[in-house]
Design a binder for these strands. Structure first.
Lengths: 227, 227
DNA sequence: ATTGATCCTGAACGCATGTTTAATATGCTA
DNA sequence: TAGCATATTAAACATGCGTTCAGGATCAAT
């Protein structure tokens, strides 16, 4: 039926528009205009809405494609381990760098892809944490799932905020962004995760007591979470 | 000279416009239109630009005011301690809750206020960490300044990302946002910070070796930063 | 070759936005 | 009171945006 697009699969104009959209959205955020995407892709603005119905439809297509590609990379066993390792590896591959940029942007705006994206990495974290605990290299937790999610959110959150505060010369060079982050925070990260932060159990005990016997909704209570 | 505004200090129309701007910017982000702010403040759109020259000028005035108020709160010694503790305390006070909202929004867009805001909290963190180390409750670091910054960025970053991923019923109720965050991540936070994450020093040693003898720019090197 | 579907374009529409402008109201000063 | 600077408004302006529309180009099928 469709003469040019569906049978030729992903090499079509539609795919090209989607890819340049991913690239520009990742580089300059989601406020990038349809016209700008059209010009970069060498098509007319009208065509984009012919293919994707609306700008929102275009974003949805981008979301799906990015998530699919990331899942694909995982299947191929590109990386195992930490968030930053995987992102570094992906950003280093020329082809998938735009995907990383797009994903990070979508994290910032917290859409549906953001949730899927994080869930994906949480699952990943759960796996290598379980392995680590079994191997005796990682301390077990009272709630492994909560810790995996926490570590993932903490990792991405710190990365995004650090990048926002220390914008590199070329914000679209995500390898450089990662590099800068590790340079600034590598040592404290390693320290805190292997040596801990608090010397006694006062904070942890306070929290455990807090959940067992929660006080009123006032803020004058114990000190549940520290930094 | 100015009959109504400057001598009467901060009770003027100009101040009212600024305050409602802070409130709306915090609630709905910086894309809030000048017209919306004008309507909420009960003035005409033109008046806002008469007082602040441009929307950017309005934002700058908001930035200065928010930063000043936060500094003021610190001077009065309202709170000491972690990011979440201080934010909780501020968000609980009806009057200063909008300031928290505005500050978090500005963190997200990473402007100039964001840097000042973070710097402020980093300084705060340095203080209570130094005290903690002196008191023997906090483990010393090889680079105290870097760790203070890291912990601050990690704390804010995790909070912002968590809030973006789990939007509460009323995103403008920042006390609720904080509460939700602590509920989800309080335990793992306490765990990781008092018990650590890694059981052996392999990761830390790998990083220390990494900075002493940095490899090429490939990602196939050691494992500098973990999650 | 004619048809019909799809791809694609260029111009236009409608809307929201930041900003400007001309005019009016207000209140201090002389 | 007269004058003048300031506060304030309502309307218009200019721009960029997402989107629509009418028509042309391209290609498979009859």
């Amino acid at each position: 039926m469709k003469p040019g697009s569906d049978n030729r699969g992903d090499l079509s104009t539609r795919a090209r528009v989607r890819d340049t959209a991913i690239d520009l959205f990742g580089r300059h955020g989601f406020r990038t205009s349809v016209r700008a995407i059209a010009e970069a892709a060498g098509v007319s603005p009208g065509l984009i809405l012919h293919h994707f119905d609306s700008k929102e439809g275009l974003r949805q297509s981008c979301d799906e494609h990015v998530l699919g590609k990331i899942r694909e990379q995982k299947e191929h066993g590109v990386t195992r381990g930490s968030v930053h390792q995987m992102l570094s590896a992906m950003a280093a591959v020329e082809e998938s760098a735009p995907l990383v940029g797009y994903a990070l942007r979508s994290l910032q705006s917290g859409g549906k892809l953001a949730k899927s994206f994080i869930d994906h990495f949480v699952t990943d974290a759960e796996e290598w944490i379980t392995d680590g605990v079994a191997a005796g290299t990682i301390i077990p937790s009272r709630d492994e799932k909560a810790r995996a999610r926490f570590l993932t959110i903490q990792g991405f959150g710190a990365l995004m905020l650090d990048a926002a505060l220390n914008p590199p010369d070329d914000p679209s060079d995500f390898a450089a962004v990662l590099h800068g982050y590790i340079q600034r925070n590598g040592l404290p990260t390693a320290e805190v995760y292997t040596e801990g932060l608090m010397k006694d159990r006062a904070m942890l005990d306070a929290y455990l007591m807090y959940v067992t016997d929660p006080p009123g909704d006032d803020q004058a209570s114990g000190q549940p979470a520290k930094p």
